[in-house]
Design a protein around this nucleic acid. Sequence first.
DNA 1: CGACTATTTGAGGCGTATCAAGAAGTGTGG
DNA 2: CCACACTTCTTGATACGCCTCAAATAGTCG
Lengths: 215, 215
Amino acid sequence: MLSRSANTVVPVVTIHANFGAAETSYVGGQQIHGEGEWANRVYEVMRGAVRNYKTLSDGRRQICAFHLPNDIFGWENGPTYRFTAEAIVDTTVRVVRRQNLEYVAATNVQVTHSLLSMTTRNLEHAENQMMLLGRKNSLEKVAAFLLEMDRRLFGTDVLALPMTRRDIADYLGLSVETVSRELSQLRARGILKFTETSQRQIVLKDRQELQALNS
Amino acid sequence: MLSRSANTVVPVVTIHANFGAAETSYVGGQQIHGEGEWANRVYEVMRGAVRNYKTLSDGRRQICAFHLPNDIFGWENGPTYRFTAEAIVDTTVRVVRRQNLEYVAATNVQVTHSLLSMTTRNLEHAENQMMLLGRKNSLEKVAAFLLEMDRRLFGTDVLALPMTRRDIADYLGLSVETVSRELSQLRARGILKFTETSQRQIVLKDRQELQALNS
DNA sequence: CGACTATTTGAGGCGTATCAAGAAGTGTGG
DNA sequence: CCACACTTCTTGATACGCCTCAAATAGTCG
């Protein structure tokens, strides 16, 4: 049972029918689970995209991760979800009850090991994001974002971004306007272009140059 | 074998003599392992403090974590360390060979589960830090740092910070000067004071007010 | 088509970085 | 114990990158 992870190709659990999995669909904008709610379920994205975020009391938002097809999310060690998870676009997920997964993990060292691998990859991503948030400037942030999406939305010439500029901004610790300006700058420099149909469809014309901007 | 974790009181592996542990000491500033080196060893801090950081090619640095007594670090899923780890002050660690730990983890579901718990706690910390780095202002960052250290360096009236202002700055995504200014502001507001002996020894006079600044 | 949201672009302001200098603290050798 | 060199820390002046506010354009959906 292997599954392609967000970042690398490593063995990882897939939520399997054996665990009592069921599919559920959400429309764009719909909440899948809320920060602080009981963490009863674990999810695997089948189609669509999910944003995982925290908010401060005054509404400031930090998106910690985007989940794309084959990503697993909602696995918690503690009793409650540390995030809100929302479908960005129409999304289908496979759901498994947490206790079923825990039941298997308690006895099966391989499943536990897979969960450990998954958590470690999430940690690596978070660590890279800390460097990005703490020490990169706005152009470097946007370049890194594009390269990440290019890697994860593989297999297509055009990056069909599911998320809004606001989502990108809240992922990179920027304002919407700054994201837009840096994208415009990259377009002006010939590093990318938008398709005729949409501003959310981006073609990377010079990945090397993007890579160079990513420090 | 239980050990107090950095953030919460949860069962977690301690590096035990059974794993073939040995103690090693480092002087302040000495490197324990470098980013990219083969991850052959796992460490537990006995005395002292460790900084874990990444650097960009031009020298910008992001400290991802400070490790204090009873913290475990150096556990990697991949082949190499993703960080440089340096002793901040004179530090003693317990060392275990990775393969010994892996050997136990491969068969013992409890040890694997402990590693999973530890990794999950690290992930939670990283997620909170992402919110801090991406969305908090400099005063909120410094307040959050002080509260974190107050929680982790428990049992004393004065916070005897092992790290320099530069370390704090690189942990919070700020400049040294800004850290210093915000500490001065908190002192001027009567929320903290320094001891007569050192600028690194801080007494928190109003934790509630600090908590309020932390959003 | 009309209402609404998302995106871009410009103008100006603010928060934090940078540069600079002095004070405080630390370590070393005499 | 002091003198000296060096590092760390603080504080002030200034610069600049990104945010905020505003308005126009583009895109979406009933």
